[in-house]
């Protein structure tokens, strides 16, 4: 819709055709529940509407010229400058924080911690129950009601199904917690080790202690809390160590996301040429 002159704008012309067409269709439908004659009237109106609609868009769209009222929509500039954030340098636009661990650090931490924890748990099973499968089966009971009445012998036996479920549970939880570590550790800059190895595991253990009878009644009956806490701390320490060892990267503050991903380079270039007016 490009204007011919500066004082007129082309707009689609008003039309009764859509309303007639809609009315016709509605009446045609209403005839189904009232009387055929209503349908017939409806169809006639609908055809009239359709024809008049077609004649308005074929061969070219009907348009009307609207006179533009000269107007000055003035946007007043703010009197005061925008407040600034007090982080390091002078910033008023920020993607916070300024430095983060790369997300892969969290994944690596989660994997490392998960492996160590799994080894410890299996060792516990071997020491106390003579079977590496014991702890695995018990973990799987979270999702498997059939294990609720199982004997210790059943729980010590190998079962591919429970192994798969336990692996899924353990892997998912380890990865998610690892990611969380990667993201959250910079928020505790003073004692990251203390947070990672002691506070978080104890918090997690406390939550589980309060809810374990619902989440996993089998584990609740058979749990050995000291080993459990040991495993948690091992996870926290290892995951925290792996994350903390990774180098931080600066977040790209001034480049727009689209440019960072390379999607909108063209229009940026355009803008830059014009200058940031």
């Amino acid at each position: 819709m490009v204007e011919n002159s500066q004082n007129e704008v082309r707009l689609p012309a008003p039309s009764a055709a859509p309303m007639l067409f809609a009315l016709g269709i509605t009446l045609a439908f209403a005839g189904v529940v009232t009387s055929v004659s209503v349908s017939i009237v409806g169809i006639v109106i609908a055809i009239a509407g359709a024809v008049s609609w077609f004649s308005e868009v074929l061969p070219t769209e009907h348009e009307e010229m609207v006179t533009v009222t000269p107007e000055s929509v003035v946007v007043v500039q703010a009197k005061l400058p925008v407040a600034y954030l007090e982080v390091g340098e002078q910033l008023n636009r920020a993607v916070l924080p300024l430095e983060i661990f790369p997300y892969t650090a969290g994944i690596k931490g989660g994997i490392a911690g998960g492996v160590v924890m799994a080894v410890l748990a299996v060792v516990q099973g071997i020491i106390f129950h003579g079977s590496p499968w014991y702890t695995i089966n018990i973990l799987a009971a979270t999702a498997m009601p059939s294990l609720a009445q199982a004997t210790t012998a059943t729980l010590s036996a190998f079962n591919p199904e429970t192994l798969a479920i336990a692996l899924l549970i353990h892997a998912t939880a380890s990865l998610l917690v690892g990611l969380l570590y990667g993201v959250m550790l910079p928020m505790f800059p003073r004692y990251p080790a203390f947070f990672a190895a002691i506070v978080a595991p104890l918090l997690w253990t406390g939550l589980l202690w309060a809810t374990l009878d619902v989440i996993n009644p089998v584990l609740d009956l058979r749990i050995e809390w000291r080993w459990f806490i040991l495993c948690q701390i091992a996870f926290g320490a290892v995951a925290g160590y792996v994350v903390d060892r990774t180098e931080k990267v600066r977040t790209l503050q001034h480049l727009p996301f689209a440019v960072r991903t390379g999607i909108e380079a063209r229009y940026r270039a355009n803008d830059d040429q014009k200058g940031d007016a």
Binding site: A78, K79, L80, P81, V82, A83, Y84, L85, L91, N92, R93, A94, V95, L96, P97, I100, Y103, L179, L180, V183, M184, P186, M187, T251
Partner: peptide, 17 residues
């Protein structure tokens, strides 16, 4: 005074968390 506060676009770590 009507001064606009600092405009924080967001925080990817906190979104992640």
């Amino acid at each position: 005074d009507g001064r606009e506060p600092a405009q924080v676009y967001g925080s990817n770590p906190i979104e992640f968390a």
